[in-house]
Structures are given as structure tokens and as C-alpha cells.
């Protein structure tokens, strides 16, 4: 089986454990039944193997956000199914989705979205605050900040950090719960080229060192070159001619 699957039959018949994300016949409709109905995703099927790094791209309105919302357990599908490992997330409750987000997924955003009142290490620990921060959490946060090159900046607040440093903190935050997948939405969008390259290199290193699967949504062609595969969305469907590796 290829790294990408286009046909429902193939993904349904795939019994291997190689795929961390399996999407089958996924559709998302907005304003269903109304004249203003929008088909954001239309029978999308594909799979992503564990430990890979891929980029999803496409024009505005192609369905990237809708796809990321559903893959990130932050929205529901109209039809079809999405498996993260062997968990069919399209059938889970809001509460169960929050658990999946906490334990399986990390997010990195264009705007970094750090909490201004917290220091770098506290921001990294944000996902574990509700359950109580343990000693091992602090040690892990410290290790992650060291890994992303911010060992000397752990006590700094976001306003004292550069854009690149903020994104590194955001990446460390995404990794604090040891996720299996990181979704990065335009991770270099607010950074200059050099810093963007450094962030992409960091993501690649983490992908290789930790084996975490990384799904990036980006318009930036310089990002596309640094991932294993590209997946283009157009009008809510995967463009089969734009699957590259």
C-alpha cells in the first residue's frame, strides 16, 4: 500500500498498523439543507503513515481548515470516518475528543498563541495544568525547552522572546503530552525566512528523533520541500495529480 490511499476500498481493507491517520469518505457540509449549503469536504479518503511529515496545501476555501478541524478532533464530520490509530474519532463525544486532543495531538499555530502571563516553561506546561503539574512534567518541559534550544529562556515571558523563540515554545508545548501527531497550521507564517527554515528544521528533527507524525498546513512552498509528502486539496477533494513525494 502506498503512503497515500485514495480509494475507500483500499483504506477499508488495510489491516496494517502502519497508518496513524486513516480518512475514509470524509465529507463536511455547512448549512446543510439550506440554499447556502457549502460542501467543504467531499468524500475525502487518504492515509498517513506513522512517523511521516506531510504538508497539506491548497487555495482558500479548498477545505484545509475543515480537514484540520476534524483531524484535530475540534469539529465533527457530516459523513465518513476518521481513525487516529485504531480510534474512530468521528464517533466520539466532545469530552472524549478533548481527551484525544490532550493525549494524542499537539498543535502549533502561526500566531504562536502563548499565554502572556506565563513564562516559557509555564506555557509549555499549559496542557497539563488541569490535571495538576507533576515533577516529571516539569522535568519533561525543561528537557523539551532544552531540545528546542531555549534552555536559557525558560523563565522568560512571551514578550521577552523573539518570534522564532515563541514558536519554539509553542512546539515544546505541543510535545509536552508526548503526542503521536502534531498539527502545525502555517508554523512559519509569522517568521522571516531564516527563522522559518530553523523552525522547519526543528520540526524535522523532532519528527525523526521522537517519531512523531507531523501534518502541516502551509501556503509556503519553502515548507513543502521540507516534508515527506504533499497533499493538495481543491474544492473539498484531494487533487490526485498533486500528490508528490
Amino acid at each position: 500500500m502506498a503512503d497515500y490511499i485514495y480509494h475507500d476500498q483500499e483504506i477499508d481493507s488495510d489491516k496494517s498498523n502502519d497508518y496513524i491517520i486513516k480518512v475514509s469518505g470524509l465529507s463536511k457540509l455547512y448549512n446543510e439543507g439550506l440554499p447556502s449549503m457549502v460542501k467543504a469536504l467531499d468524500q475525502v479518503s487518504f492515509g498517513i503513515k506513522k512517523g511521516k511529515m506531510i504538508t497539506i496545501f491548497g487555495p482558500s476555501g479548498s477545505g484545509k481548515s475543515s480537514l484540520l478541524n476534524i483531524l484535530g478532533c475540534m469539529d465533527s464530520a457530516t459523513s465518513g470516518s476518521v481513525f487516529l490509530e485504531d480510534i474512530r474519532i468521528t464517533e466520539l463525544s466532545e469530552r472524549e475528543l478533548a481527551d484525544i486532543r490532550k493525549h494524542m495531538i499537539g498543535f502549533v499555530f502561526q500566531e504562536f498563541l502563548l499565554i502572556p502571563t506565563l513564562t516559557a516553561i509555564e506555557n509549555v506546561l499549559l496542557p497539563v495544568i488541569p490535571g495538576g503539574i507533576k515533577k516529571e512534567d516539569r522535568e519533561r518541559a525543561m528537557n523539551l525547552l532544552t531540545q528546542v534550544g531555549l534552555k536559557e529562556r525558560v523563565k522568560h515571558k512571551p514578550k521577552e522572546l523573539s518570534g522564532g523563540e515563541k514558536q519554539r515554545v509553542a512546539i515544546a508545548r505541543a510535545l509536552i503530552n508526548n503526542p503521536k501527531i502534531i498539527y502545525a497550521d502555517e508554523p512559519t507564517g509569522n517568521l522571516d525566512t531564516k527563522t522559518g527554515d530553523e523552525i522547519m528544521q526543528l520540526l524535522r528533527n523532532l519528527n525523526q528523533e521522537l517519531g512523531v507524525t507531523i501534518v502541516i498546513v502551509s501556503h509556503d512552498p519553502s515548507v513543502w520541500d521540507k516534508t515527506d509528502y504533499l497533499l493538495k486539496l481543491k474544492d473539498g477533494q484531494i487533487d490526485p495529480h498533486k500528490i508528490t513525494s
Partner: peptide, 16 residues
């Protein structure tokens, strides 16, 4: 709002 969004994205439950 963005902070709450990131909190939710990182697994904070509505209740919390």
C-alpha cells in the same frame, strides 16, 4: 478568545 482556543486545543475540557 485565542487563549481559550489554545487551551481547548491542548485538551482543556469545557468544564475546566
Amino acid at each position: 478568545l485565542k487563549e481559550f482556543a489554545i487551551m481547548k486545543a491542548t485538551g482543556w475540557k469545557n468544564r475546566t
